[in-house]
Design a protein around this nucleic acid. Structure first.
Lengths: 335, 335
DNA sequence: CTGAAAGCGCTTACAG
DNA sequence: CTGAAAGCGCTTACAG
């Protein structure tokens, strides 16, 4: 007799004096079980503290158990950037009423091996990949293993045969630039996100496009990496390069808030002397002083669409290969 | 032939011209497999895009697969209160090098049924329960199903036979009060957390104790629920009740930051006219103006201890029934 | 080094 | 309404 063994359905059946089949039917709320049998089984379940073995069930009833949200970023990043928090909350919420588990797989962006091993390992039935960098090999793994997957954010490599949802980042960057231009700013810079990500490229492209068509210099570009610290550093560099800087588009609110703090610390008035436009429309944008003018990142729609696509993929139904969501500018005090 | 079937080990074996046993050994990196066989199997795996079926493996090799972090709070709360974010990050990190999955189970605090069903459902091998309210029946479920579990934070019902880790909340409340008293404040209030949680009780008790022993009125108590909004409401009530209020201990930084904003909006200078002490030592405490004096909630140690205890429980080793972590005050500008 | 066979805990036609 | 039996995909003594 082993030291400790969890009670199985067999134990429950024995105790209730019925067959495993009947016990199983009770557990699964199958209506065609007699009252006496049902009650006996229910009692046995309580007495034994029976919990079904999920693995055994899944083996024989192949349903969707879990989907992984893959974020090739460090844990600190994931939990400190409100964009991820909001996206994760939204994904979790879209699946709240289904029995599908949401697993979170994170890992250093440089080293996606752990994630790749995870994806290959059969731990999950599908994946939503959220923050995708140029150098990771995630899509190759997804393709090789045929794991149903959806990207949030255009894959850097372009169309790789995996459907994706994205916000129109290019239009967003353009909106931001337009706001700065149309309010009379002339020395306009931008702080980009990590340049190994498609979103950063697109936002920059939109910004650049607008400056060009306004006949302004589109050279005042500094690269951040979406972290608060990088925003502070970048704005300092920008000021150094162009002391007359009077407007800046920062590719995320997290960086933008840091940049505003930095500007204020340097004695520059926002928005009087320099206007700042962020991206994301996160809570922080609203709470910081002055409140941030920013481009909306429709997190809930992004999450909902990704989940919907993945669920369809898992049911082997056809899905759009890409969905691009519109964005808009929210005008507040900073620009 | 079914429309679509994932390749199994059997398929791999057939393709490689070996037995399932050998194929299995290659997948599990068993050294005693000949080079030719190994290579043939590896090739087959790649060609077929084989992913092992985790359920089948777990069935036969009963290892710890996943642990659930149970937070009986709404998704929004979990993702907006930095305390949870920090705790989740820390728990995830402690398990980063192990193959153990971290599942996140959330749900409305009033309605813990969904969580209870989840816990009974056999979805996970163990649980860390993080934010526990008086009315939920989680511990009863854990006890009934013998699911290995650890609480972060003293269970409201007291010693229920489930080990827990907690910070010394009572001492923390006392430290906060002491700081206010010792800097000459005399009309000192407090904003509590949700009163159906042990942490709120303990922090309040510590605060009360100190005021009593300083011979001050300990009646200026307003109840919040740990949300930012509740902090704002509570400080207004406090001011209404006692316009001379010159010090307040707020039971979380999230509420404290909101209270400070509210005070500033009402034209009160912090700390000159009114001192504020928070709890948690979250990032926000550092970033808000003025920076918050606050009591440290040692999140990393809390998480690390909880994981350690749970892992031991899962290995059926004996564990302490409770671990209480010390706390300290971090002095900044707000008090 | 390799394979045939048993078995993990469950569900589900099938037969009654 | 109920049970005997097959089978899900894998691992692992056991025997060779």
């Amino acid at each position: 007799m082993p030291a400790k063994r969890l009670p199985t359905l067999e134990d429950v059946a024995a105790r209730a004096g019925v067959s495993r089949a009947t016990a199983s039917r009770v557990v699964n709320a199958d209506p065609r079980v007699g009252r006496l049998a049902r009650e006996a089984v229910q009692e046995a379940i309580v007495e034994l503290g029976y919990r079904p073995n999920r693995n055994a069930r899944s083996l024989v009833r192949p349903e969707v158990d879990s989907i992984a949200v893959v974020v090739p970023e460090a844990e600190e990043t994931v939990f400190s950037d409100p964009f991820f928090a909001a996206l994760l909350a939204a994904i979790t919420q879209s699946l709240a009423d289904s029995p599908v588990q949401v697993l979170l797989a994170m890992g250093q962006p440089g080293d996606s091996q752990k994630i790749e091993r995870y994806l290959r390992g059969g731990y999950t039935d599908g994946a939503i990949v959220v923050s995708h960098h140029k150098d990771d090999h995630i899509w190759q793994v997804l393709t090789a293993t045929k794991l149903p997957a959806v990207y949030v954010g255009r894959p850097y490599a372009g169309d790789v045969g995996i459907p994706y949802v994205d916000v129109d980042n290019r239009a967003g960057g353009a909106l931001a630039a337009q706001q700065l231009v149309s309010t009379g700013r002339r020395r306009i810079g931008t702080i980009t996100g990590a340049m190994d990500m498609a979103a950063s490229e697109d936002r920059l492209a939109g910004w650049r496009e607008q400056l060009h068509s306004a006949g302004l210099d589109a050279g005042l570009v500094e690269h951040g990496d979406f972290s608060a610290a990088s925003g502070a550093v970048a704005i300092r560099r920008l000021l150094k390069r162009e002391p007359q800087l009077d407007g800046v588009f920062v590719a995320s609110d997290l960086m933008a808030v840091a940049a505003v703090h930095e500007l204020q610390a340097a004695g520059r008035k926002v928005p009087e002397e320099i206007a700042v436009v962020g991206f994301d429309n996160s809570q922080a944008a609203e709470l910081t002083r002055p409140p941030l003018t920013t481009v909306v990142n429709p997190v809930t729609a992004l999450a909902g669409t990704a989940v919907k696509l993945l669920l369809r993929l898992l049911e082997e139904q056809p899905v759009e290969s890409r969905v691009i969501l519109e964005t808009k500018l929210v005008r507040r005090a900073s620009a």
